[in-house]
């Protein structure tokens, strides 16, 4: 049963990863290292840096985020990520959908408990 649940959570986490990235960027613009550290630290997500960078690149290619490079005196140049308008709209739709889905999926269709 645990294996089954583990597999299911992997699927859920994979599905939610895009949403988590967009949500993190909805709050403010962040540079790559900072963003990745934040996402890796999210409890229950179990995501690694190796997974996040390809995802960020794909979101950029799809036009949901935009990037810019900024030189840093403290180390390598920082690559900042921000949401595009389309990314913002997609986030709204995702959240609405998730909310609706959650409500539909977890709704008790027989509150009285009778079969």
């Amino acid at each position: 049963m645990n294996d089954y649940f583990d597999n299911w959570t992997v699927q859920v986490r994979k599905g939610l990863l895009d949403l988590c990235v967009l949500q993190a960027l909805a709050e403010r613009e962040q540079y790559g290292y900072e963003l990745v550290k934040h996402l890796v630290a999210l409890p229950g997500m179990g995501v690694t840096e190796g997974t996040l960078y390809p995802l960020l690149s794909r979101l950029r290619v799809q036009g949901l985020v935009r990037t810019r490079l900024e030189e840093s005196p403290e180390g390598p140049a920082r690559k900042y990520y921000a949401l595009t308008e389309e990314g913002r709209r997609a986030l709204v739709l995702m959240k609405a959908y998730l909310e609706k889905l959650n409500a539909v999926a977890t709704r008790d269709r027989n509150p009285g408990g009778r079969p």
Partner: peptide, 11 residues
């Protein structure tokens, strides 16, 4: 520490 590079499936 970086972990394996696993490209997420494209939506």
């Amino acid at each position: 520490r970086l972990g394996p590079v696993e490209p997420a499936p494209e939506i």
